[in-house]
Design a protein around this nucleic acid. Structure first.
Lengths: 95, 95
DNA sequence: CAATGCGCTATGAAAAACATAGCGTCAAGC
DNA sequence: GCTTGACGCTATGTTTTTCATAGCGCATTG
């Protein structure tokens, strides 16, 4: 399974993003994602753990070293998005 | 709708990636994605067009200037993934 | 005026995600 | 020692998304 296929799955980018500041418990992560069901979250965590992107440790789920190298990239995406939004330059057709 | 929500949808990263080298027709893009159905592809193209990330021009679908600024980020992701794969360091639990 | 390629739509079946309830475990707190 | 709460996670039935496939209307080309 390729990285793009993993990151392209629903919630995956969001999960990595929510873990950026430090470990979160399963339930805290679920709350941070706002609308994810536990079944799906568990599914994603299995996937991410299987690919060594997150790990479950005593203080909760945490990004691995591998995911840490990925984080700056996601951060750049957020920066881009924020700059567009700040410039009022982000078309939102309907929703 | 936020950028992460868009990029987190199935096929979106892949579509942007496939358009990196230049415009593709609807059908060519569909073929490049290998398993996307036309209904979903059309859905995604509407979304991407609505957010000014792709445009339909005479020679096919093309990335907009906005998407061009996003492309290096996706490229970095691919670079990371490739470096992991090259190092034989990319766990693939089952599939 | 048939043939081809285009963007795209229709339809019914399969897969994914949903909301909600709850299980088993364990570490306090009374 | 027994309730209470938080933990990771599972179960179930419904809704939403994606799927595969067929085909439409249109334009160009022979």
């Amino acid at each position: 399974m390729r990285l793009l296929d993993i990151l392209g799955q629903r919630w995956v980018l969001r999960i990595l993003w929510e873990l950026r500041a430090g470990p979160l418990s399963f339930r805290a992560l679920q709350a941070a994602c706002e609308a994810i069901s536990p079944a799906v979250l568990n599914d994603r965590m299995k996937l991410l753990r299987g690919h060594d992107l997150v790990a479950l440790q005593a203080d909760g789920y945490a990004l691995t070293a591998r995911a840490q190298t990925l984080l700056p990239v996601i951060l750049q995406m957020m920066d881009l998005a924020n700059s567009w939004a700040a410039a009022g330059d982000w078309p939102q057709p309907d929703a």
